[in-house]
């Protein structure tokens, strides 16, 4: 099997409110899978179904090829968006408790905790109470508890909220490191910009429906519309130049008269760019030429708008 998780036609209703309607997903092994969508799109409900906290009304979920069952809980690590710790309990004791609930023995849990506490440089905290910790400190402990039992599938719901940039980077490195060790990771967020550098696959959810999924690079390719940004230093009249390229629909032009620098965007034919570039090179010195690749956010907005336009 090359999929760690497969969802087939999963639907879930809460009373009259539809949280998920007919969601099908395939999450490949050993990748970082972005589950994207605005708040209220149904991400958390889907994640809770994967964690067997709630159960779908219809549809099936398969973990590593088998129907999802209670024994899979030990193979999944989940960092929920709404997360916290017992305030009056000591850090070490609490981490041990949570690890044992995931099925680790006390001895094994202690050994691994020691490793992780040293790795994240928090090994003085074992006997501190959680209420003495800062929010970021508590988040580190939560991260450790999530990954401690070495699950096959890790689910992070907004993992970077509550971290300062330095520690957010540290956690990001740890996530990449876990992936390198073979773990499959679901990464749920409504902040699209954090997705680009981490996820290989994404699924977009909106209003309880999946509107798009697949490999991020493929999606981007599909959403490219052959628009290029151009920058040129020229001697002549910028308007004249733009008029010459009317067939390429120049837009968003900005001219800096002092430096004689013109920037604009053009839509080029999909066959090639040499025709345009040849003509452009005659008019001055090209210092910038780049294809506009849509961001996940652009794609999301575009898709949602398309849907709304159709519907």
């Amino acid at each position: 099997m090359n999929h760690i998780l497969v969802a087939e036609g999963v639907s879930k209703k809460f009373g009259s409110h539809t949280a998920l309607s007919n969601i099908s997903l395939e999450i490949p092994k050993n990748c970082i899978y972005g589950l994207l969508g605005p708040n209220g799109a149904g991400k958390t409900t889907l994640i809770r179904i994967i964690n067997q906290i709630t159960h779908p009304d219809t549809g099936g979920v398969y973990f590593d090829g088998k129907p999802l069952a209670p024994e899979h809980i030990a193979s999944i690590g989940y960092l929920p968006e709404e997360r916290g710790l017992y305030k009056s309990m000591k850090v070490g004791e609490q981490a041990l408790y949570l690890a044992q609930l995931k099925g680790l023995s006390k001895v094994e849990a202690k050994k691994r905790l020691k490793y992780w506490f040293e790795r994240l440089e928090i090994d003085g905290w074992w006997n501190k109470k959680v209420q003495e910790l800062s929010k970021g400190m508590a988040q580190k402990i939560q991260f450790i508890v999530t990954v401690l039992h070495q699950p096959k599938l890790l689910i992070f719901d907004e993992p970077f909220s509550g971290f300062d940039p330095i520690n957010a980077n540290k956690i990001k490195d740890e996530i990449l490191n876990l992936k390198a060790q073979g773990t499959s990771i679901i990464f749920s967020t409504h902040r699209m910009e954090s997705v680009e550098e981490l996820c290989e696959y994404i699924a977009l959810l909106n209003h309880s429906e999946k509107i798009l999924d697949g490999k991020l690079s493929d999606i981007k390719k599909a959403y490219k519309n052959n628009v290029f940004s151009v920058g040129i230093q020229l001697d002549g009249d910028p308007n004249g130049l733009l008029r010459t390229f009317d067939e390429f629909q120049p837009s968003n032009d900005v001219y800096n008269a002092e430096e004689k620098q013109l920037s604009f965007e053009v839509k080029l034919p999909s066959e090639g760019t040499s025709n345009f570039l040849g003509k452009l090179a005659e008019r001055g010195r090209i210092n910038h030429f780049e294809e506009n690749v849509p961001s996940a956010n652009d794609i999301f907005i575009q898709t949602v708008n398309q849907r709304n336009g159709h519907g």
Partner: peptide
Amino acid sequence: IEEKTSRIIEVIISSVKP
């Protein structure tokens, strides 16, 4: 109530049944 307000509840019920 304490488990709810400290937000630990979801961490726990991802390991055990409510």
